[in-house]
Nucleic acid binder design. Structure first.
Lengths: 157, 157
DNA sequence: ATAGATGCAAACTCTTTGCAGGTCG
DNA sequence: CGACCTGCAAAGAGTTTGCATCTAT
């Protein structure tokens, strides 16, 4: 089910809540498996057999650009995440599954994670996103946009 | 120039130090731009015009699998990093450049980075890698196997 | 009514692979 | 000399796009 505030947020931007779009959003939000486009496509097709893969791609991309979903890249392609709140990820190098972990200090979590969740952490990486000196407005402070991961294409994860 | 210890490490694994291989390694290690395969190909071709893109891909993949290079995925494809030591990255959302930043506590760095480097950090993510409870040997310790590229097919996603 | 969205198929980009011939040790 | 490696071309995989048609609002 799509909450009213999501529906309103879409409409406020001139976006329609079509049947494919609603189901795509539903499917991504209903799983914590960080699905690929192909996975979403298979799931959506169970409810809407005539949907096209292109529609799934277009909607995932748009919903991520508008901040309704988070997206991340890995070696196999893009993955989407219905959980847009702050949280980190644990990727199992053996089975490839991606788990959510609560956002926390990297150093401490490295030791704490195993005890609490059964994860054995072998490595971790932190990626920062923002603006480099060359791209910041020269004069003064930049305005604190609470920017959704939307505008530019150079979005890393 | 390739240090002797790298040459020996290669040979110890039965790998040859061919001309294309040496130049590819050289090129990646000579830049901090986190190059794509295409970038490496262009650079290598300046020194070895008949090199093929396939050779560049095969070598980058192999050198990463053997631990001579680090690799990371982003929306545009794979990127390689000659710096295999522990460090984090800052990606500029405006120009797309990826900068190295010293490994450090995520929380503190978020405030400290701007002052020291001119980076304005808008967001950050930490990824943990390891083994989940389901994949750990039930009885005891596991030993870290070096990860090959996209070996574990992620559970039908 | 009409701007926006969809389905289909073709096109694109990045990456991998098969194979015959070349090369390092 | 033999195993490993390379160049070339073709194939794969994931993602995007052009276009006629359809549909929320």
């Amino acid at each position: 089910m799509i909450p009213n505030k999501t529906i309103d947020a879409l409409r406020d931007r001139g976006l329609r809540l079509t049947r494919p779009r609603r189901i795509i959003l539903d499917v991504v939000r209903a799983t914590d498996a960080h699905p690929t486009a192909a996975f979403v496509y298979r799931r959506v097709r169970r409810r809407l057999p005539r949907v096209s893969l292109a529609t799934v791609y277009r909607n995932l991309q748009m919903l991520a650009a508008e901040g309704f979903l988070a997206e991340r890249a890995d070696a196999a392609g893009m993955r989407f995440d219905g959980n847009t709140g702050p949280h980190d990820h644990f990727t199992c190098l053996t089975c490839g599954r991606i788990y959510d972990v609560p956002a926390g200090a990297a150093g401490a979590a490295r030791r704490r994670l195993p005890a609490r969740t059964g994860f054995e952490v072998l490595d971790h990486r932190t990626e920062y996103y923002g603006r480099c000196g060359a791209c910041r407005p020269p004069g003064g402070r930049s305005f604190p946009t609470r920017q959704r991961r939307s505008n530019g294409k150079p979005q890393g994860l």
